[in-house]
Amino acid sequence: MTDSSREFQGTSLLSEKTSEIIIDSPDQLLPLAKQLKDKGYDHVISLSAVDYPKSNELHLVIHISSYTKRDLQPKVFELRVKLKKSEPKVPSLINIWPSVEFQEREAYEMFGIVFEGHPDLRNILLDQEEFSGVHPLLKDFKIPEEDITLKLKEDVKSGTNK
């Protein structure tokens, strides 16, 4: 374990009966994830993000749970990491929870979050060429509209809609 993780344990964020933790720096993620895994949270239900353009932040939101320790409370734990929108980079959790593999790929294509250390970071649902550098779940993504022109209401009324 590195020095930074030892420091982090000192803050003992996990000692209370919290159901969620928000961390400001991606560096804290791995040590915290390791602690949660040791506590019994053995798999990831959901890994995704929420875009907050007003504060110029991107939150990585991870929901974890446990198959093996069934009395663990809370059943679903929420882990949030604040990321800078200009450079959304975070270490990959794949070595701690292998179950994130496909979900990290999804967060990468949908939000442009780069997971450092992911062995196979490429699009999973979206076409690699069409969506390279385009991240549809960001709030500023405009959904392209089909160019279909319907006749005006007035034309329909006056019977010119032939």
Partner: peptide, 24 residues
């Protein structure tokens, strides 16, 4: 199965007794 976060009947057929109907 646990490591890969598999769910549902596939998880239970690998020996993990876990069902949301029981858990929550």
């Amino acid at each position: 199965a646990i490591e890969l976060g598999v769910t549902g009947p596939n998880l239970r057929a690998s020996g993990v007794s876990y069902d949301v109907r029981v858990e929550e």
